[in-house]
Amino acid sequence: MSLSPEQVKQVAHLARLSLPPEKVEPYARQLSNILDMVSQLSSASTDDVQPMAHPLEMVQRLRPDAVSEENRREAFQAIAPAVEDGVYLVPRVIE
């Protein structure tokens, strides 16, 4: 299985990672190698195997529906880059 340079750029973009142009080719090669290694699993018969959602053989514990988190807005907003009237400010997301 081999990844094209375009696919590598696309994945980097989706993950918001900056990728210098000279790194595209080596990453494409290395990622392809990883995929090749993992693809060996395809040769195993998994007809009777339940897909693994988690490596731990355990079941999710549930939480009672009771408020346990107090308001700590001040502490959280003290370390935010920008706040105003209690809201977090981010660069404008629509025109």
Partner: peptide
């Protein structure tokens, strides 16, 4: 997301 009242920025209430 609150797009008004924050000049040039978007306000976020989570």
């Amino acid at each position: 997301s609150l797009h008004e009242n924050f000049s040039g920025a978007t306000g976020i209430d989570l």
